[in-house]
Design a protein around this nucleic acid. Structure first.
Lengths: 129, 129
DNA sequence: CTGCTGTGATTGACATACTTAACGCTCCTG
DNA sequence: CAGGAGCGTTAAGTATGTCAATCACAGCAG
Protein backbone atom coordinates (compact mmCIF):
# COMPACT_ATOMS: atom_id res chain seq x y z
CA UNK A 1 0.00 0.00 0.00
CA UNK A 2 2.45 2.54 1.01
CA UNK A 3 0.03 5.35 1.01
CA UNK A 4 1.09 8.48 -0.68
CA UNK A 5 -0.61 10.31 2.09
CA UNK A 6 2.66 11.07 3.62
CA UNK A 7 1.63 13.58 6.19
CA UNK A 8 5.18 13.51 7.33
CA UNK A 9 7.09 15.11 4.57
CA UNK A 10 10.16 16.00 6.55
CA UNK A 11 12.23 13.90 4.23
CA UNK A 12 10.45 13.19 1.12
CA UNK A 13 12.03 15.85 -0.99
CA UNK A 14 15.67 14.95 -0.67
CA UNK A 15 15.29 11.28 -0.08
CA UNK A 16 13.00 10.86 -3.03
CA UNK A 17 15.42 12.59 -5.28
CA UNK A 18 18.19 10.30 -4.15
CA UNK A 19 16.04 7.21 -4.37
CA UNK A 20 14.76 8.07 -7.81
CA UNK A 21 18.27 8.68 -9.02
CA UNK A 22 19.52 5.39 -7.65
CA UNK A 23 16.66 3.46 -9.13
CA UNK A 24 17.16 5.08 -12.48
CA UNK A 25 20.86 4.31 -12.47
CA UNK A 26 20.27 0.77 -11.42
CA UNK A 27 17.74 0.09 -14.14
CA UNK A 28 20.05 1.76 -16.50
CA UNK A 29 22.77 -0.69 -15.65
CA UNK A 30 20.28 -3.48 -16.13
CA UNK A 31 20.59 -4.66 -12.58
CA UNK A 32 17.84 -6.23 -10.54
CA UNK A 33 17.46 -5.34 -6.90
CA UNK A 34 18.87 -8.70 -5.92
CA UNK A 35 21.87 -8.41 -8.18
CA UNK A 36 22.66 -5.03 -6.79
CA UNK A 37 22.10 -6.37 -3.31
CA UNK A 38 24.73 -8.99 -3.98
CA UNK A 39 27.24 -6.41 -5.18
CA UNK A 40 26.61 -4.03 -2.35
CA UNK A 41 26.10 -6.50 0.49
CA UNK A 42 22.92 -4.65 1.27
CA UNK A 43 19.63 -6.49 1.35
CA UNK A 44 17.40 -6.17 -1.68
CA UNK A 45 14.52 -5.31 0.60
CA UNK A 46 16.31 -2.34 2.02
CA UNK A 47 17.47 -1.19 -1.35
CA UNK A 48 13.89 -1.20 -2.50
CA UNK A 49 12.88 1.00 0.39
CA UNK A 50 15.73 3.38 -0.17
CA UNK A 51 14.86 3.73 -3.82
CA UNK A 52 11.31 4.63 -2.91
CA UNK A 53 12.41 7.19 -0.37
CA UNK A 54 11.23 5.29 2.69
CA UNK A 55 14.61 5.38 4.35
CA UNK A 56 17.75 7.43 4.43
CA UNK A 57 20.75 5.23 3.76
CA UNK A 58 23.89 5.53 5.84
CA UNK A 59 27.26 6.43 4.42
CA UNK A 60 28.30 2.83 4.41
CA UNK A 61 25.36 1.85 2.27
CA UNK A 62 25.58 4.90 0.09
CA UNK A 63 29.18 4.18 -0.65
CA UNK A 64 28.45 0.60 -1.54
CA UNK A 65 25.73 1.71 -3.89
CA UNK A 66 27.94 4.27 -5.54
CA UNK A 67 30.53 1.59 -5.99
CA UNK A 68 28.14 -0.85 -7.56
CA UNK A 69 26.80 1.76 -9.91
CA UNK A 70 30.28 3.02 -10.74
CA UNK A 71 29.49 6.48 -9.56
CA UNK A 72 31.28 8.65 -7.07
CA UNK A 73 29.82 9.09 -3.65
CA UNK A 74 29.86 12.78 -4.32
CA UNK A 75 27.63 12.38 -7.30
CA UNK A 76 25.10 10.55 -5.18
CA UNK A 77 25.29 13.12 -2.46
CA UNK A 78 24.83 16.06 -4.72
CA UNK A 79 21.96 14.21 -6.27
CA UNK A 80 20.38 13.98 -2.88
CA UNK A 81 20.83 17.70 -2.50
CA UNK A 82 23.15 17.16 0.40
CA UNK A 83 26.11 18.97 -0.86
CA UNK A 84 25.80 22.61 -1.24
CA UNK A 85 26.03 24.66 -4.30
CA UNK A 86 28.11 23.52 -7.10
CA UNK A 87 25.69 25.27 -9.31
CA UNK A 88 28.02 27.95 -10.50
CA UNK A 89 29.69 26.05 -13.27
CA UNK A 90 26.38 25.07 -14.73
CA UNK A 91 24.54 28.28 -14.90
CA UNK A 92 26.79 31.26 -14.86
CA UNK A 93 24.95 32.87 -17.69
CA UNK A 94 21.27 33.36 -17.72
CA UNK A 95 20.82 32.43 -21.32
CA UNK A 96 22.83 29.48 -22.33
CA UNK A 97 20.70 26.61 -23.48
CA UNK A 98 22.70 23.53 -22.75
CA UNK A 99 20.70 20.96 -24.58
CA UNK A 100 17.19 20.68 -25.79
CA UNK A 101 16.61 17.56 -23.79
CA UNK A 102 17.65 19.25 -20.59
CA UNK A 103 15.43 22.16 -21.37
CA UNK A 104 12.52 19.94 -22.12
CA UNK A 105 12.96 18.16 -18.81
CA UNK A 106 13.27 21.42 -16.92
CA UNK A 107 10.17 22.81 -18.53
CA UNK A 108 8.06 19.69 -18.19
CA UNK A 109 5.09 20.56 -15.98
CA UNK A 110 4.29 16.94 -15.26
CA UNK A 111 7.45 16.40 -13.27
CA UNK A 112 7.82 17.22 -9.61
CA UNK A 113 10.98 19.08 -8.64
CA UNK A 114 12.49 15.92 -7.23
CA UNK A 115 11.70 13.95 -10.33
CA UNK A 116 13.10 16.68 -12.48
CA UNK A 117 16.34 16.64 -10.56
CA UNK A 118 16.61 12.90 -10.70
CA UNK A 119 15.89 12.73 -14.40
CA UNK A 120 18.39 15.44 -15.17
CA UNK A 121 20.95 13.57 -13.17
CA UNK A 122 20.42 10.43 -15.17
CA UNK A 123 20.54 12.27 -18.43
CA UNK A 124 23.73 14.06 -17.59
CA UNK A 125 25.38 10.90 -16.47
CA UNK A 126 24.63 9.51 -19.92
CA UNK A 127 25.84 12.42 -21.86
CA UNK A 128 28.85 13.25 -19.80
CA UNK A 129 29.98 9.71 -19.50
CA UNK B 1 36.62 2.22 29.33
CA UNK B 2 37.81 3.20 26.03
CA UNK B 3 39.85 0.06 25.94
CA UNK B 4 38.38 -1.37 22.88
CA UNK B 5 39.37 -4.86 22.52
CA UNK B 6 38.62 -3.93 19.03
CA UNK B 7 37.67 -7.21 17.61
CA UNK B 8 35.99 -5.20 15.00
CA UNK B 9 38.40 -3.15 13.03
CA UNK B 10 36.21 -2.92 10.00
CA UNK B 11 35.39 0.60 10.93
CA UNK B 12 37.92 2.03 13.12
CA UNK B 13 40.14 3.28 10.40
CA UNK B 14 37.67 5.39 8.53
CA UNK B 15 35.53 6.43 11.43
CA UNK B 16 38.52 7.47 13.44
CA UNK B 17 39.86 9.46 10.57
CA UNK B 18 36.58 11.25 10.26
CA UNK B 19 36.20 11.80 13.98
CA UNK B 20 39.73 13.00 14.40
CA UNK B 21 39.35 15.38 11.53
CA UNK B 22 36.16 16.80 12.94
CA UNK B 23 37.68 17.25 16.35
CA UNK B 24 40.70 18.97 14.91
CA UNK B 25 38.58 21.32 12.87
CA UNK B 26 36.37 22.10 15.81
CA UNK B 27 39.25 22.95 18.11
CA UNK B 28 40.77 24.92 15.33
CA UNK B 29 37.64 27.01 15.21
CA UNK B 30 37.77 27.39 18.98
CA UNK B 31 34.44 25.76 19.54
CA UNK B 32 33.44 23.72 22.53
CA UNK B 33 31.37 20.60 22.06
CA UNK B 34 28.32 22.39 23.38
CA UNK B 35 28.76 25.38 21.15
CA UNK B 36 29.05 23.16 18.15
CA UNK B 37 26.10 21.16 19.41
CA UNK B 38 24.07 24.33 19.43
CA UNK B 39 25.04 25.22 15.88
CA UNK B 40 24.45 21.76 14.53
CA UNK B 41 21.35 20.82 16.51
CA UNK B 42 23.17 17.66 17.45
CA UNK B 43 23.68 16.78 21.08
CA UNK B 44 27.10 17.41 22.54
CA UNK B 45 27.07 13.86 23.81
CA UNK B 46 26.72 12.41 20.39
CA UNK B 47 29.27 14.76 18.91
CA UNK B 48 31.75 13.56 21.46
CA UNK B 49 31.12 9.98 20.49
CA UNK B 50 31.45 10.74 16.82
CA UNK B 51 34.71 12.54 17.34
CA UNK B 52 36.15 9.59 19.15
CA UNK B 53 35.04 7.19 16.49
CA UNK B 54 32.44 5.43 18.58
CA UNK B 55 29.70 6.03 16.10
CA UNK B 56 29.22 6.67 12.44
CA UNK B 57 27.18 9.82 11.94
CA UNK B 58 24.28 9.89 9.55
CA UNK B 59 24.21 12.12 6.53
CA UNK B 60 21.95 14.55 8.28
CA UNK B 61 24.40 14.98 11.14
CA UNK B 62 27.40 15.01 8.88
CA UNK B 63 25.91 17.78 6.84
CA UNK B 64 25.15 19.83 9.92
CA UNK B 65 28.71 19.41 11.10
CA UNK B 66 30.13 20.40 7.77
CA UNK B 67 27.93 23.43 7.87
CA UNK B 68 29.01 24.48 11.33
CA UNK B 69 32.66 24.06 10.45
CA UNK B 70 32.18 25.84 7.17
CA UNK B 71 33.37 22.92 5.17
CA UNK B 72 31.72 21.12 2.33
CA UNK B 73 30.28 17.73 2.95
CA UNK B 74 32.58 16.45 0.28
CA UNK B 75 35.60 17.64 2.17
CA UNK B 76 34.50 15.72 5.21
CA UNK B 77 33.87 12.63 3.19
CA UNK B 78 37.12 12.65 1.36
CA UNK B 79 38.82 13.21 4.67
CA UNK B 80 37.21 10.09 5.96
CA UNK B 81 38.39 8.28 2.89
CA UNK B 82 34.89 7.72 1.72
CA UNK B 83 35.05 9.10 -1.71
CA UNK B 84 36.76 7.35 -4.47
CA UNK B 85 37.38 10.07 -6.93
CA UNK B 86 35.52 9.77 -10.10
CA UNK B 87 35.99 12.81 -12.11
CA UNK B 88 33.12 14.91 -12.94
CA UNK B 89 33.12 17.19 -15.86
CA UNK B 90 30.34 18.46 -17.87
CA UNK B 91 30.23 20.36 -20.96
CA UNK B 92 28.27 19.75 -23.98
CA UNK B 93 26.26 21.65 -26.39
CA UNK B 94 23.78 21.33 -29.10
CA UNK B 95 20.45 22.83 -29.78
CA UNK B 96 17.30 22.03 -31.49
CA UNK B 97 14.30 23.27 -29.67
CA UNK B 98 11.69 20.64 -29.12
CA UNK B 99 8.30 20.54 -27.60
CA UNK B 100 7.70 17.54 -25.43
CA UNK B 101 10.17 15.83 -23.19
CA UNK B 102 9.63 12.48 -24.83
CA UNK B 103 10.32 13.93 -28.23
CA UNK B 104 13.44 15.61 -26.99
CA UNK B 105 14.71 12.36 -25.60
CA UNK B 106 13.91 10.45 -28.77
CA UNK B 107 15.64 13.02 -30.90
CA UNK B 108 18.69 13.43 -28.74
CA UNK B 109 21.68 12.39 -30.82
CA UNK B 110 23.93 11.93 -27.87
CA UNK B 111 21.97 9.02 -26.50
CA UNK B 112 22.51 5.46 -27.56
CA UNK B 113 19.36 3.45 -28.31
CA UNK B 114 19.72 1.66 -25.01
CA UNK B 115 20.08 4.87 -23.10
CA UNK B 116 17.18 6.38 -24.93
CA UNK B 117 14.94 3.49 -24.00
CA UNK B 118 16.08 3.56 -20.40
CA UNK B 119 15.57 7.27 -20.05
CA UNK B 120 12.15 7.10 -21.60
CA UNK B 121 11.26 4.34 -19.20
CA UNK B 122 12.29 6.39 -16.24
CA UNK B 123 10.44 9.40 -17.51
CA UNK B 124 7.24 7.47 -18.10
CA UNK B 125 7.42 5.84 -14.71
CA UNK B 126 7.55 9.32 -13.24
CA UNK B 127 4.77 10.77 -15.28
CA UNK B 128 2.42 7.83 -15.28
CA UNK B 129 2.96 7.36 -11.60
C1' DC C 1 37.14 24.31 52.27
C1' DT C 2 32.30 25.01 49.95
C1' DG C 3 30.00 26.28 46.12
C1' DC C 4 29.40 27.70 41.16
C1' DT C 5 30.11 27.31 36.21
C1' DG C 6 32.67 25.74 32.64
C1' DT C 7 34.39 21.53 30.10
C1' DG C 8 34.29 16.48 27.93
C1' DA C 9 32.55 11.67 28.93
C1' DT C 10 29.02 8.11 30.22
C1' DT C 11 24.45 5.93 30.78
C1' DG C 12 19.78 4.44 29.56
C1' DA C 13 15.71 5.09 26.71
C1' DC C 14 13.90 5.78 22.19
C1' DA C 15 13.90 6.32 16.93
C1' DT C 16 15.45 4.72 12.78
C1' DA C 17 18.59 2.01 9.64
C1' DC C 18 18.98 -2.54 8.23
C1' DT C 19 18.22 -7.95 7.68
C1' DT C 20 15.97 -12.19 6.98
C1' DA C 21 11.98 -14.60 5.60
C1' DA C 22 8.17 -14.39 3.71
C1' DC C 23 4.47 -12.72 -0.04
C1' DG C 24 2.22 -11.70 -4.68
C1' DC C 25 3.06 -11.05 -9.30
C1' DT C 26 4.44 -12.29 -14.24
C1' DC C 27 6.73 -15.13 -17.57
C1' DC C 28 8.23 -19.58 -18.91
C1' DT C 29 8.65 -24.76 -19.27
C1' DG C 30 6.93 -29.34 -18.67
C1' DC D 1 -3.02 -27.33 -14.76
C1' DA D 2 1.46 -27.32 -11.73
C1' DG D 3 5.72 -25.30 -10.61
C1' DG D 4 10.06 -23.19 -10.94
C1' DA D 5 12.50 -18.69 -11.57
C1' DG D 6 12.69 -14.05 -12.05
C1' DC D 7 11.06 -9.60 -10.33
C1' DG D 8 9.62 -5.79 -6.64
C1' DT D 9 7.46 -5.31 -2.14
C1' DT D 10 5.98 -6.21 2.78
C1' DA D 11 6.43 -7.85 7.86
C1' DA D 12 8.80 -8.62 11.92
C1' DG D 13 12.94 -8.71 14.22
C1' DT D 14 17.87 -6.98 15.36
C1' DA D 15 21.50 -3.57 15.30
C1' DT D 16 22.82 1.07 15.52
C1' DG D 17 22.28 6.11 15.53
C1' DT D 18 20.67 9.82 18.55
C1' DC D 19 19.05 12.46 22.62
C1' DA D 20 18.23 14.02 27.56
C1' DA D 21 20.03 13.52 31.85
C1' DT D 22 23.90 12.80 34.53
C1' DC D 23 28.58 12.16 35.84
C1' DA D 24 33.59 13.58 37.10
C1' DC D 25 37.07 16.82 36.60
C1' DA D 26 38.85 21.47 36.22
C1' DG D 27 39.17 26.71 37.47
C1' DC D 28 37.67 30.69 40.21
C1' DA D 29 34.51 33.38 43.81
C1' DG D 30 33.23 33.84 48.40
Amino acid sequence: MSSEGNGDSRWSAQVNALGGFIRAQRQLANLSLREMAAMTSVSNAYLSQVERGLHQPSLKVLHSIADALQLSTEQLLSQAGWTRGYTESAEANGDTPMSSTEDAIRADPRLTPEQRTALLGVYRSFVDG
